Structure formats: structure tokens, C-alpha cells
Simulated scan of single mutants.
Amino acid sequence: MTSDGSADTPPSTSKTFRTAFRDLGRGWSQSELWLQLGWQDIKQRYRRSVLGPLWITIATGVMALALGLLYSMLFQISVREFLPHVTVGFIVWGFIAGCIKDGSNVFIENEGLIKQLPSALSVHVYRLVWRQLLFLAHNMVIWVLLVLIFRIPLTWNTLLAIPALALLVINGVWVTMLFGVIATRFRDVAPLLESLVQLLFYVTPIVWTTQTLLEQGGEVAQRARIAELNPLYHYLEIVRGPLIGLEVPAYHWGIVGACTIAGLLAAVLVMRQWRFRVPYWV
């Protein structure tokens, strides 16, 4: 039986774009299943906890506050300016890192369901992205507090965060599918990605800003422009900018759009080639 429940589909016809897109569509149509499973994941994680999912917000808030205060003193930047930058960046990074790290194990951790439940393979992808989106929603409470405390202006520009978050979710789907399939076949990929994500945290402008480096001029300013080569920087900017009252240059959107298209194509190609083998690899 294949992962989309079509037991009579021979392997030779599984390597088509049609079956890859059919898997994505069938998984989306089973939204009641993955929505419920994703919510159960969070309830199970905080079972018998007094505060429950609020621990997500507390842990993120404490970490963002500590890093924001520390680096604002080190860089001599106003807390009013720097803390929202760090906090929103940290919130968005949590979603990105979760999709990459948890996504690499998405099929391995759902071995039992994949082998026993006749559902589309993409159900497990949507479930994980939905779970990460719930984490993100919990953490957005911190942003609301920042708006109230620092009086961050809410304008029409703030609404750009909505399509930015939509792009983030779409990218979460292809990232999870792509790395999930590859890491299921090659088990060394998951720990490699975990180390890579930790490294990327420090080279992405989360606890530092490119503007600070540019103001120093010279070679330091040139190094700041190297950050432009990091795609995650652009993903952060299109979400963080509107939420902290900053204008986002159009080229950030262009780069994110190009990366999204390239990533979706890569994920579909991987699904076309190997999706029917995942039940045998897990």
C-alpha cells in the first residue's frame, strides 16, 4: 500500500508529478485529521502542566528579554528600539527552526501512522506545520505586550505581516517535506540540520542588526552586506519589519518569493521521485 492509501497503484506510476500533487491535495482535504493531531501534540506535550501551552510564551518571552537586554547593552542600542527587534526575530525564528529541525524527523517519528493509517504522506507535513503555527500564535502574545509597552505604531503597513506569515507557512510546508524525505533516507541529515540551524541563528540578524554594522563603516559595513546572502535574513525582515513599525524594502519580498518557488519545485521533485519509498524507509 502506498502512503496515499492507493494500494493498487504500481510503483512505476508513482514517480509522476500527478501523484505528487495528488498527495498534497489529498492531505489538504484531510484537514480535520491533521488539525486535530497537531492540537493533540500540544496538549500531550503539556499534559498535567498547570500553565499548559502558556509555557511556550513564558519560555520565549524570558529568552527574548534576556538576550534583548544583554545585547542592547553590548551594542549600546536603546532597549526601546532593540528589544522589539530581538523579540519578534526570536518568535519568527522559532517557527523557522521548528520546521527545519522537527521537519527532518517528521516521517521517522510517525512511522506507526504511516504504516498503519491509509492517509496521504502530506498529512504529517501539514500536522507539523500546523503545530509550529500554534506555537507561533502563542508567542504572538508577547508582540501584543510589546505594542502596548513601547507604543509600536500600528498602521496599514502592519497588515503586510499577514501575507508574510502566509509565505512563511508555505515555506514551512516545502521545507518539512523536502528535509523529511531526505532525512528519512539518510539518517545523518537530521543531526546535521540541527547543528546547521544553531549556527544559522548566530549569523542571522536576530540578536544583532545590520544597521549597527553599517554605521561603523569600512570593512565592518562590507561584512554586514554579506548578511544579504543569507535567505533567512529576508524571511525575518518581511515578517519583523511590519510588526515593529518599519518599512520593508521590496527586494526582500522578491528574494523570499524566488526562494519559495525554488523550494516548492525542489519539494515536488523529491516527492515525485521518492515519496512512495518513505513507508519502506521509516
Rank of each mutant, 00 (worst) to 15 (best):
residue 196 L to A: 12
residue 86 V to S: 06
residue 280 Y to V: 01
residue 7 A to D: 06
residue 27 G to D: 03
residue 34 W to H: 05
residue 34 W to P: 01
residue 232 L to D: 01
residue 101 K to P: 00
residue 243 L to A: 01
residue 66 A to N: 05
residue 105 N to D: 09
residue 146 L to I: 04
residue 101 K to H: 07
residue 261 I to W: 14
residue 68 G to T: 02
residue 183 A to S: 14
residue 226 I to Q: 09
residue 88 V to N: 09
residue 162 I to R: 11
residue 242 P to W: 06
residue 259 C to E: 06
residue 8 D to P: 02
residue 100 I to C: 02
residue 112 G to D: 02
residue 215 E to Q: 14
residue 201 F to W: 15
residue 95 F to C: 03
residue 124 H to Q: 15
residue 176 T to F: 12
residue 242 P to R: 11
residue 138 H to I: 02
residue 48 R to F: 12
residue 232 L to S: 03
residue 278 V to E: 05
residue 272 R to Y: 03
residue 248 V to I: 07
residue 216 Q to H: 06
residue 239 V to K: 10
residue 31 S to W: 15
residue 90 F to W: 15
residue 167 L to M: 14
residue 52 G to N: 06
residue 59 A to H: 10
residue 201 F to M: 10
residue 39 W to G: 00
residue 43 K to F: 09
residue 202 Y to F: 12
residue 28 W to Q: 10
residue 205 P to C: 07
residue 48 R to D: 03
residue 98 G to D: 06
residue 86 V to Q: 07
residue 11 P to D: 02
residue 16 T to N: 03
residue 53 P to I: 01
residue 213 L to Y: 10
residue 126 Y to W: 10
residue 70 L to Y: 13
residue 57 T to R: 15
residue 90 F to T: 05
residue 112 G to N: 09
residue 273 Q to C: 01
residue 13 T to P: 05
residue 78 S to G: 10
residue 123 V to N: 15
residue 115 K to F: 08
residue 163 P to N: 03
residue 104 S to L: 13
residue 89 G to W: 08
residue 270 V to L: 11
residue 117 L to H: 11
residue 44 Q to G: 12
residue 144 V to Q: 11
residue 233 Y to Q: 04
residue 191 P to N: 11
residue 45 R to A: 02
residue 23 D to K: 14
residue 192 L to R: 12
residue 174 W to F: 15
residue 7 A to H: 13
residue 9 T to K: 15
residue 262 A to E: 02
residue 193 L to K: 13
residue 148 L to R: 10
residue 154 L to Y: 04
residue 3 S to Q: 10
residue 102 D to H: 15
residue 257 G to A: 06
residue 52 G to Y: 06
residue 198 Q to H: 08
residue 97 A to S: 09
residue 199 L to V: 10
residue 211 Q to K: 10
residue 130 W to V: 04
residue 122 S to Y: 13
residue 117 L to F: 11
residue 50 V to L: 10
residue 245 G to A: 05
residue 88 V to H: 12
residue 106 V to P: 10
residue 83 L to D: 05
residue 172 G to H: 14
residue 81 E to C: 07
residue 241 G to A: 04
residue 197 V to P: 02
residue 189 V to N: 14
residue 9 T to V: 11
residue 206 I to M: 07
